[in-house]
Amino acid sequence: MRYACLIYYEPKALFGGSAEANEVLSKCSTYGETLKETGHWVAGEALELPDGAMTVVMRDGKMATTDGPFMETREVLGGFILIDAPDLNEAVRVASGHPLARIGHIEVRPVVDFSKPRPQL
């Protein structure tokens, strides 16, 4: 199964210059390589901070945009990796090895299987 690991962190903590944060940052780029070796890797990207983002909506056929998401939350979505793993526990284990798990938090979400029924809400 495929799982998206959504990586959240507090920009001030990650880029605040602490020794711990700097060590995490230095290890981030190599974790993707590790996952390619283990066969878990499907895709992944790190994202720029939300102040470089645009939010778009289409309503009544008209496009409207705003600058960036509102920065009210302290934690931001900072990147994602898409992995292939036999089950949720394995996906969680893989996510726990990501350097940013030590400073931010990682949400592990199963990717939708469209052959299954839609959720009933």
């Binding site: 089950d87 949720l88 526990n89 969680v92 199963p110």
Partner: peptide
């Protein structure tokens, strides 16, 4: 079931009619 039986978290959840995160959390 997972560590000796080799069932996946999702299979165990299906068998016990519960959600995968519930089983995953139990295992962790």
């Amino acid at each position: 079931l997972r560590e000796i039986g080799g069932l996946t978290t999702e299979e165990i959840a299906r068998a016990y009619l519960t959600s995968p995160p519930t089983i995953a959390q139990r295992i962790v």
